[in-house]
Design a protein around this nucleic acid. Structure first.
Lengths: 135, 135
DNA sequence: GACGAGTTGACAATGATTCTCAACTGACCT
DNA sequence: AGGTCAGTTGAGAATCATTGTCAACTCGTC
């Protein structure tokens, strides 16, 4: 098994634009659409093409630097994230997000899957609710 | 609290078109896109407008007769389903789907959420893997 | 057999995302 | 410093799922 096989994702070449995206991501805690992020970057003074924002977010999410999920209507939204496997607890009204994790679900999904003979398991899980501030 | 408030979803008026969609849904077990379903209906002899297929699937999913989920690239896919709350175990390569359920996750999400003060909880969970037939 | 709300279909419109391609840039070599 | 080249960028066109529009139709009911 060579070490290059596992899609090592060679480090992205650092450019003005990528820096701008990363900085924009640092500015909020909830999930935002690519367009909103593009907007933020513009507002912050830099000027990065929308296509580039899309490309960058895509790459960052492949590398695991950002989480990507889909809104109800299929729009992709992004957020910087910690490197470890985790899920999200998202406020339905203000979008406030908490990263959550725990062995319970991991164990459950794995056992359910193997019960049915499925291998090579992965899963997605998002929890929605109303946060304390929005009650 | 009146009984009409909770979006009771009055029964859909039965039409040729809706019947055709429901019949098409009966013909497969995995998730299909609206366009594929439209295609199937055509192939089966009926002729239903694409917009109608979209509208119907949307309504059926509101009523809980079909499950809707999003592919990696944001496309909506549908499948008839049982009425009870459940999740899916989907084969990554052939799409074979098993409905799964269990108190474990339900309990876990509820407790995680309330730990963080979130109320009025809901969640989405999909498990992906390779089914026995595709190993 | 007429009426009215719900439904349909053809097609336009929307909107997020991706593609295209020529121009630019960063890292590296000499 | 100049040369080279793969990786990157931007502007706008192109794609494609999905939704809106609106006049014509249909179901159940009177």
């Amino acid at each position: 098994m060579t070490s290059t096989e596992r899609g090592e994702a060679q480090p992205l070449r650092p450019t003005k634009q990528r820096t701008a995206v990363v900085e924009a991501l640092a500015a909020f805690d909830d999930f935002r659409s690519a367009q909103e992020i593009h907007e933020l970057i513009g507002r912050a003074g830099s000027n990065v093409g929308l296509a580039t924002v899309y490309r960058t977010l895509q790459k960052l999410s492949e590398v695991g630097e950002v989480d990507m999920l889909r809104t109800e209507d299929g729009e992709a939204i992004y957020r910087r994230c910690s490197a470890t496997h985790h899920h999200h607890l998202v406020c339905r009204s203000c979008g406030a997000t908490v990263e959550v994790e725990g062995p319970t679900v991991e164990r459950w999904t794995r056992s359910i899957a193997s019960e049915h003979g499925y291998a090579d398991i992965s899963h997605t899980l998002e929890i929605f609710g109303t946060c304390p501030a929005c009650r």
